[in-house]
Design a protein around this nucleic acid. Structure first.
Lengths: 105, 105
DNA sequence: GGCTACACATAGCCTGCCTACATGTAGCGA
DNA sequence: TCGCTACATGTAGGCAGGCTATGTGTAGCC
């Protein structure tokens, strides 16, 4: 998959992977690999800044915890994050309809 | 639709709209508007450089003609452009499968 | 004479993701 | 105990690709 195709969809991916569960950054990267059968392997330099940005936007909330001596920042969706996810999903459907319509079946 | 979502899919759109017909730049923009029910309104500063780039890549061929006093550069797919289009379509399917799979139904 | 639609083109910006690097813990094998 | 790998978070700066702004010119209408 070409690199640039992800552009504009990163937020949707991060919100979706946190839908209904709490995960820390490293686990988010692994979850995306798993859910995409290995197709998505996002670098930490992409994911961590994005998570902080989404938290600043009020869509995520985080808290530190310690598991076997390692510090983790665990993220979860806020109420408005859930709304944002719904909006992202709607936009994804529109996007695929538009582009798919032009590309043909 | 967010602006950056187009990233990485522009070539596919341009190749697809030229599949099986010859069009000049301005008509390509109109054809994309039409096929997308107005959702895609690409600026000339996006389309014209892209067309020249695709021609340099060997995927398009162009010729000048004059219609009622106006000069037009008419583009058509080359053989390797058709192959590129097929590859772009395959990549689009993969892309939607991967992202759609993460976003959920 | 001025306005709108048609038609092409380029320079430079902007943004958002990626590369590269930095830091630190835990656990295993040699 | 030394080194390696996996785990875990983070930032600075680069880069590429589409967009903004601008320029040029014709045709046709009012």
């Amino acid at each position: 998959m070409k690199a640039d195709t992800l552009r504009g969809h990163l937020d949707a991916l991060l919100l979706a992977v946190l839908d209904g569960r709490k995960l820390h950054g490293y686990a988010i990267i692994e979850a995306l690999q798993l859910r995409s059968d290995g197709a998505l392997d996002l670098p930490t330099g992409t994911v961590y800044p994005a998570l902080r940005r989404l938290e600043r936007a009020g869509w995520l909330a985080s808290e530190w915890d310690v598991v076997s001596g390692r510090k983790r920042r665990t993220y979860r969706l806020t109420r408005s994050g859930e709304q944002a996810l719904a909006a992202e999903r709607a936009e994804w459907r529109e996007f695929t309809t538009v582009i798919g319509g032009v590309l043909g079946t």
